[in-house]
Design a protein around this nucleic acid. Structure first.
Length: 765
DNA sequence: TTAGGGTTAG
């Protein structure tokens, strides 16, 4: 395939090989220069001659005796005369001398004379204009240009970005006389000028003609061509990924390869454009070359993109290929592997990578590749994120004992986060004290991690005190600190304090961001302070932040709960106007609210609008409608929707849908239908939860079906579904009245035993 | 390589 056909926008190709005049043939200077040694003109005579030629008017040369006398004393061979030309001050003078010599002294080679004149013109002010004038004359005289002349012209025109002139000179040379150098100059100019089509036609010629180069024809690409093309591939935004691969391979066929750094950048570029498969193709193609250009950094770039797409299979394959080709992985290679394994929570595999890199002794250090603290920190973070902070701590001790590297602030931050996450706040505080003792400075992330950990585990007071101590010790809080504190106070319904913290944050000159605004708005909505929430939304917008879909949904939900449907519709319209597309959650929230208030007409209209917007009703949409009909006691309609949902819409019911129906059926004393739905759940593999059982127990109590209740309790236990206070309330009232407290005690006993067993065994029961 | 928010039906 020619390169042009790979272009996305076809344009009329430039016919570089057709429709142009071959005005001149290249004259090779080596074949023209004399092979015999020439008698030298004494330097003083040459100087006198040059002085004379420069000082007297060109019209008077014929009449000047001194000039004639001097010329007669020198050897007037063409090479001497050319040397003389070269030493004149201006191209105009040199041109005149050439013409004068031709008729008055001895004919000299026009090609060489013009070369000398071009050389002078290139050094003059306004060189390009002078060169153009001389070039025009040479064209008129049909003078063949020497290789040197072409080089001078192309170099000067290229420097002045005169693309058309370069191209014209190029076209005037016969293809057999074009050189790779000239092609490269033109190619670079055309690429830089954005003339991609023509550049690729020329490149295609260079690539195709290469086979003829052995016979002296063609202008095959060289490393400079590669440099120009690779730079363009990296720079150009619209280049298609297939073209990147194809050009690299085509140049590769001619022995021109990108270096490791360029391969890395090409792969990164392809990765950024989500063209991982082409990046893979490129790297694999280049890896096939024996002692090729692929190095660890090129592979690292590929591993990064494979990691981002979670393609661990190919990552392993690439590692194996690197081993096979003798490409030695470096610390970054292993770092990338560890990071992406940890991100996917495959921490044990990440730990195996650490083992792999530390097991061999090849470099006298006792390591295959010495791991750095970044790799260790990534592992600590990975272990902590999956709830294994103890192992992270043990690994840190090992790292310290083996003197591999010293813990840093990040190390401690990861561990502190891990212990906070698992609720071991005291251990986190101990680690904080330890880092200070060791001289590892805590930073704002350390403080924020601890503050958030304390807040999330119900120790808001401790968090506030710790935060104040830190401020006194010089670590000021930032927006993240305040977000944690505001969130914590909202959750315990202390909105006043949350608002006070928000104000404090503003006076502390911490710039609020979208997250802290969301946190406060969501807290106010939760507390039912809808108008205060709207006022914060106003502040948020004034600070230049927009609400996203989730924030709008929170607001809509708040107003739905208060049944302020006018405001809901206002917010909905504003959402659409701001370009935030209402999603399934938005529609489901509104449909649910309408269902609860019995407005099924508007609910149905809303559902139609939802479908019209290209959204698909979900199990929640149907659940909202089913619940609405259950509330007004229209169980038959609810059941019809339930059936239609399954058959027509192919939406599988989930636990919540069954719960709604079972609860309503039991309340309507249709317990036998509820029991059959419960059996259906089992068949369909939908797991009941405590709400299902509670609803069921109420229905069974009403019917006094004790045996069925005992059977359900058994099923509940087998599923490791914990009873809650509602379960206990129903069963205690019922079982005490019928003298079955022993069964209830056994039931509770089983759970206590389960709770004391290790997690795995509890699950098995 | 480390820290804060996340909405809908029971």
């Amino acid at each position: 395939m020619s390169i042009r056909t790979l272009l996305s926008s076809p344009k009329q190709p430039l016919h570089l090989l057709k429709h142009h005049r071959y005005l001149s043939a290249i004259v090779d200077i080596d074949n023209v220069l004399p092979t015999q040694p020439q008698p030298q003109t004494p330097p003083n005579i040459t100087s006198k001659l040059i002085h004379l030629l420069n000082s007297i008017n060109t019209d008077n040369w014929n009449d000047n005796d001194e000039l004639r006398q001097l010329l007669s004393t020198i050897n007037t061979t063409p090479p001497t005369l050319i040397q003389l030309l070269r030493r004149l001050g201006t191209s105009a003078k040199a041109l005149k001398l050439y013409q004068w010599v031709q008729t008055n002294v001895v004919p000299i080679s026009p090609s060489l004379a013009y070369q000398a004149i071009f050389e002078i013109a290139a050094r003059e002010p306004d060189s390009c204009l002078k060169l153009l004038d001389v070039l025009e004359l040479s064209r008129d005289e049909n003078v063949a240009l020497t290789v040197e002349s072409v080089a001078i012209l192309v170099r000067s025109f290229a420097r002045a970005q005169m693309v058309d002139e370069v191209r014209r000179v190029f076209n005037e040379i016969q293809p057999c006389n074009r050189t790779t150098y000239i092609c490269n100059v033109l190619l670079a100019l055309m690429f830089r000028g954005g003339n991609v089509d023509d550049s690729l036609v020329l490149l295609d010629e260079m690539l195709q003609l290469e086979s003829e180069s052995e016979s002296g024809l063609g202008y095959p690409p060289n490393d400079s061509t590669g440099f120009i093309v690779f730079a363009w591939l990296l720079r150009e935004k619209t280049v298609r990924p297939e073209m990147v691969v194809s050009l690299v391979f085509k140049l590769g066929d001619h022995g021109v390869f990108p270096d490791g750094m360029t391969i890395m950048r090409l792969i990164t570029k392809l990765g950024h454009g989500s063209h991982c498969s082409q990046a893979w193709e490129l790297l694999n193609g280049l890896m096939k070359i024996k002692e090729g250009p692929v190095d660890a950094q090129s592979c690292n770039a590929m591993l990064t993109w494979l990691g981002r797409t979670n393609d661990f299979q190919k990552m392993n394959l690439l590692m194996a290929e690197m081993k096979e080709k003798g490409i030695r992985p470096n610390v970054v290679t292993f770092g990338v592997l560890v990071m992406y394994l940890c991100k996917s929570r495959r921490v044990d595999e990440a730990l195996r990578v650490l083992n792999e890199m530390t097991k061999e002794e090849e470099n006298g250090e006792g390591f295959f590749v010495r791991p750095d603290v970044v790799i260790y920190n990534t592992l600590f973070d990975g272990l902590c994120k999956v709830g294994r902070p103890g192992e992270a701590l043990a690994l840190m001790q090992k790292m310290r004992l083996q003197n591999v590297c010293a813990p840093t602030t990040v190390t401690y931050n990861c561990l502190i986060y891990g212990f906070c996450k698992s609720g071991e706040i005291e251990s986190s505080i101990e680690l904080f004290d330890q880092m200070k003792e060791e001289g590892v400075p805590p930073n704002i992330i350390t403080v924020n991690t601890l503050v958030d950990g304390m807040c999330k585990h119900g120790r808001i007071g401790t968090a506030l005190k710790f935060f104040n101590d830190m401020q006194i010790n010089g670590i000021k809080g930032d927006t993240v600190t305040y977000t944690s504190l505001i969130n914590a106070h909202c959750r315990v319904n202390n909105i006043d304090k949350a608002m006070a913290l928000f104000d404090e944050m503003m006076s502390a000159k911490c710039t609020p961001d979208a997250i802290v605004y969301y946190t406060l708005i969501s807290g106010l909505i939760q507390a039912g302070q809808l108008d205060d929430a709207i006022s914060i939304v106003g502040k948020m917008k004034a600070s230049g932040f927009c609400l996203d879909a989730v924030s709008y949904n929170v607001l809509i939900n708040g107003f739905c709960k208060e049944n302020r449907m006018d405001k809901v519709s206002e917010i909905f319209k504003e959402m659409e106007l701001s370009g935030i597309r209402p999603d399934e959650v938005t529609y489901n929230t509104i449909i649910s609210s309408l269902g609860k208030s019995g407005d099924f007409n508007t609910a149905t209209e809303t559902m139609k609008k939802m479908i019209g917007e290209g959204l698909v009703p979900t199990v929640v949409t149907f659940g909202a409608l089913i619940h609405g009909y259950c509330i007004i006691g229209k169980l038959d309609v609810a059941m019809t929707i339930f059936e239609n949902m399954r058959s027509t819409s192919k939406v599988s019911p989930n636990t919540v849908i069954y719960n709604i129906l079972i609860d309503s059926l039991c309340k309507e004393n249709k317990t036998e239908v509820a029991v059959s739905l419960m059996d259906e759940m089992q068949v369909k593999g939908v797991v009941p939860n405590v709400i299902t059982y509670n609803a069921m127990f109420r229905g069974l109590q009403e019917k006094k079906w004790l045996d069925k209740a005992l059977e359900m309790m058994d099923r509940m236990q087998r599923q490791a579904c914990n009873p809650d206070y509602v379960t206990m309330e129903i069963l205690t009232e019922w079982f005490s009245a019928v003298g079955e407290m022993e069964s209830l005690r056994n039931f509770v006993q089983e759970y206590q035993v389960s709770a004391s067993l290790p997690r795995n065994e509890a699950k098995l029961r």
